[in-house]
Amino acid sequence: MSRAVIVGGGIGGLATAIALARRGWEVEVLERSTRIEEVGAGLSLWPNALRALAALGLDETVGARAREEESAGIRDSKGRWLSRTDTEAIRARYGSPVMIHRSDLLEILRAAVPNNAVRSGISVTAVQADGTVAHSAGTSAGDLVVGADGIHSVVRRAVCGAIEPRYSGYTAWRVVVTPTAPVSDMGESWGRGERFGYSTLPDGRVYCFATADMPAGTPGGGLAELRARFGSWHDPIPALLDAVDDTAILKHDLYDLPPLKTYVAGRIALIGDAAHAMTPNLGQGACQALEDAVVLAHIATADGDLTDYDRQRRPRTQMILKRSRLIGAVGQLSSPAAVLARNALLRLAPPSAQFNSLAPVLDWECC
């Protein structure tokens, strides 16, 4: 029986464990945290991710705990539409994207991993190309080692050496609130160097996120700052801020990775943020990790040639990473003249333009 050691028990790592186990592999998941969980964040699963989940046999389980996304688009800070997403066209061609809480997705994935496969509280210190993994509890070895350990990946050092993440230039706040009145729509609003977005979760709570230009490591940034920045924006943003619990706000500077020269070395393969950490502007970070998982499991089982995985996944994920970075740069424009031009161009673009731009991202079929 083939054996895989998976470093990291997040979405990508768990999905890879499931995909390999379904193909008869013995899997061991090494997770640094003592508990696998995520709080405070919603997650968009686009149709390409739902097809990956179908390959894992989990599409119906996820669908039962997710909410189909409805109207969406981009507005300015006063609520005037800049661009509307043609959700009907997306639904007709690709299927409907859904919204789910990250913790719910992690719970579903964890339940589908074989019993006793996950070892929590294990810190990996080094990985060798021959499949040897040194960690805080000793060593593990596999026919395949999967680096699913995030943007600051230890495994990546064995593949690419030291790679420094790039700061995007803006920070992000995330929080889930219980609104006093139902919120039915979703989308983003763009200002000058600032954005605010919201989307309704299946239980009626609303996932809110915001971004603002600032130097990396800027302190502070609680509810008072969110109100100062966004409290005068259009409805329902002020009401959503009124429902925020200051202690529940997550604030993180946003980073991505420069394009790597390879995702594989010897018996090692990188997936998810370890390979292609991207800014969240396309909502594709977790989606691409799910794609990685099913493609890697297929290739590792079919012929074991990991260079095939690199050839399939690196061009696609780096294209999406680049697009996400570009969208973030446009969304964060702060010069009055640049913002005026950006907003005018968005208003002039037909809905089909956004739909066509999404085609290379959504038009993916799993193996």
Results as ranks from 00 to 15, higher is better:
148 A>G: 11
109 L>P: 02
84 R>H: 01
90 I>Y: 00
86 D>E: 12
129 A>N: 14
159 V>Y: 03
111 A>M: 09
141 A>L: 03
93 R>G: 09
88 E>P: 00
100 I>V: 05
135 H>C: 11
133 V>Q: 09
66 A>Y: 02
119 R>H: 15
105 L>R: 03
91 R>S: 05
69 E>V: 06
108 I>F: 09
114 P>W: 08
126 A>S: 14
118 V>F: 11
88 E>S: 12
92 A>M: 08
118 V>W: 03
151 I>M: 15
107 E>L: 13
150 G>R: 10
72 A>K: 02
139 T>W: 10
133 V>M: 12
145 V>D: 03
159 V>C: 08
89 A>C: 10
152 H>Y: 12
100 I>R: 01
144 L>M: 05
102 R>V: 13
72 A>V: 00
119 R>W: 15
65 R>I: 00
138 G>Y: 04
134 A>P: 01
135 H>M: 12
87 T>A: 14
109 L>W: 07
92 A>H: 10
142 G>R: 03
92 A>C: 04
64 A>N: 06
91 R>Q: 04
137 A>V: 10
106 L>I: 12
85 T>P: 01
110 R>V: 02
95 G>D: 09
151 I>P: 14
92 A>F: 03
137 A>F: 08
87 T>I: 15
78 K>S: 12
82 L>Q: 01
130 D>G: 15
118 V>E: 05
91 R>W: 04
116 N>C: 09
81 W>Q: 04
145 V>K: 04
106 L>K: 11
69 E>H: 00
137 A>G: 12
121 G>R: 15
63 G>V: 04
138 G>F: 05
156 R>M: 07
147 G>R: 03
98 V>G: 02
135 H>F: 11
114 P>Q: 07
105 L>K: 08
75 R>Q: 09
131 G>Q: 13
149 D>M: 10
102 R>L: 10
129 A>M: 14
110 R>I: 01
80 R>V: 11
80 R>W: 06
131 G>W: 15
146 V>A: 07
123 S>G: 15
